[in-house]
Design a protein around this nucleic acid. Structure first.
Length: 476
DNA sequence: CGGGTTTGACCTGCGC
DNA sequence: GCGCAGGTCAAACCCG
């Protein structure tokens, strides 16, 4: 029997030179088989051949499984690269557009002092915009300087990367370059990303300002107001409660959660009921996920990260002109719903609030989305050339989210063909897409609100099904 | 028994 | 320096 085992071992190891877990299973199996065979006293060469063939098949199966795993990893890597590249393209396009707009604006407002733009609370938003512009220049330089190979390596981050994360990496990179000028490798990135180019802050003043801005960006928050009977709204992620506090001015306690979908995920959220209307649940998200998100979480994560990037990019209609007040209401984008999106720069951290508490009938969808009068109910009717648009990808997110919520009346219908042609759901690109099209935030929020509203209405006598699902989702 | 929740203690930043 | 409020920690507790 001994030759059989040796044969199996050598076959598996020779397939790729790596001893795999399947090997243990094989040897364990054959060991038991060996004992049973020995116990029966069967030593015929026919049985030996049978065993050998079985071992060969198993070894081949193991090799194929290993190959399959490698292919999966490769596919994931390719997907990640695609996400990052698409995000980069969209953000560069948008920044180019912003620069054109700003240059034309500068022509008309040549005499306007810069100090006016950075005065008071508007300074926060302006700092974000300044940083984005600084980064824009740096990235433009990078585009012309770095090779495509470098870029592929640089952009191979996690699919959930956002502009904020990108900025953080650049900041880290810059720090590392300043401190360790003589070590070209720099510090290894936790996720395996090895930066080789950093922003080109030329003096310490810029650097200091950028660091302050980065600290603020890290603290940027997205707050979601929604009506829910449950203790927490479902966003597809897994959360662990780590604290609860009584906040001043609100009889309802504030609960603190952190994401437990990956070890070390920095994302946290606070959940608190509104003091004025306790049916309203205010969920505040902070940070960026360091792991891929399940489809159910992509919608909310992309919504919040998109809203955050909207805040950070300063591309909202009001903020774009440097007149950001403590509460900005982009009325132009939301007819009949002036409080849907609020940017707050007066809070300790810049916060964008998505108000999902208004009844959907206050926001006629056909007024909100420029693509289709029936959006989002018949996205499948969109022409093909729109399918690659980030906005459409966001719509797919919404569809995915709704599917995950078990909503039987999906407002978003996608043909199989479309899904196959555009199989990827790009959180980062959709975040950038928000900056590209301010109307989209309104449309997306309106769509989500309509679902929440429908769900609430449909289950008004049966408690909130979403809420009951929430507790299940979040407690698993 | 492992994982999640509760809750009081502790830390930190900020205003006075 | 002191008090307050927000945020976090960690031991105790609970639950499946």
């Amino acid at each position: 029997m001994e030759p059989v085992d040796h044969h199996i071992v050598s076959l598996v190891q020779s397939s790729d030179g790596i001893k795999r877990t399947g090997l243990n299973l094989l040897t364990t199996n054959t060991a038991s088989e060996k004992s049973s065979v020995a116990g029966d006293g069967i030593t015929s060469s026919q049985n030996l051949k049978e065993k050998q063939r079985l071992a060969d098949v198993r070894a081949e199966l193991d090799r194929i499984n290993a190959e399959n795993q490698r292919l999966k990893l490769t596919l994931n890597q390719v997907n990640s690269n695609y996400y990052a590249l698409q995000m980069h393209l969209v953000s560069l396009t948008q920044r180019h557009r912003n620069r054109i707009a700003e240059s034309s604006e500068a022509n008309t407002q040549m005499n306007r002092p810069i100090e006016e733009k950075t005065h008071g609370e508007g300074m926060v938003a302006r700092q974000f915009m300044d940083l984005v512009q600084t980064e824009t220049k740096a990235e433009t330089d990078e585009l012309s300087e770095s090779s495509s190979e470098d870029r592929c390596q640089e952009l191979s981050g996690s699919p959930g990367n956002t502009i904020v994360e990108s900025m953080e990496r650049r900041q880290r990179n810059n720090k590392s370059r300043n401190q360790r000028e003589d070590t070209p490798e720099g510090l290894p990135h936790p996720a395996g990303w090895l930066p080789n180019k950093g922003p080109k802050f030329n003096n310490s003043k810029d650097n200091e300002q950028a660091q302050q801005t980065m600290a603020m960006i890290r603290k940027a928050r997205v707050s979601v107001r929604a009506r829910s009977e449950a203790s927490m709204i479902s966003d597809g992620c897994q959360w662990r409660k780590y604290g609860q506090k009584m906040a001043k001015g609100n009889p309802c306690p504030r609960a603190y959660y952190r994401c437990t979908m990956a070890t070390g995920c920095p994302v946290r959220k606070q959940v608190q009921r509104c003091a004025e209307d306790r049916t309203i649940l205010v969920t505040t998200y902070e940070g960026n996920h360091n792991h891929p998100l399940p489809p159910a979480a992509m919608a909310m994560a992309s919504t919040t990260s998109a809203a955050a990037s909207t805040l950070l990019s300063g591309s909202m209609p009001s903020a774009d002109h440097g007149i950001m007040n403590s509460n900005i209401v982009p009325k132009g984008m939301l007819p009949g719903s002036p409080n849907l999106i609020t940017l707050s720069a007066s809070a300790p951290f810049p916060t964008v609030t998505l108000d999902l508490t208004h009844p959907p009938n206050q926001r006629p969808l056909h007024q909100l989305h420029p693509l289709s009068p029936n959006w989002p109910h018949n996205i499948s009717s969109l022409p093909d050339h729109l399918l690659g648009h980030p906005i459409y990808n966001q719509s797919k997110l919404l569809g995915t989210y709704l599917s995950s919520q078990g909503n039987n009346e999906l407002p978003v219908h996608l043909s199989q063909n479309q899904m196959q042609r555009h199989p990827m759901v790009d959180t980062a690109a959709t975040a950038a897409a928000i900056t590209a099209d301010p109307n989209f935030t309104a449309a997306l929020v309106a769509a989500i609100t309509s679902i929440i509203g429908n769900s609430h209405r449909d289950n008004s006598g049966n408690n909130n099904s979403t809420a009951s699902r929430n507790s299940g989702d979040n407690n698993t």
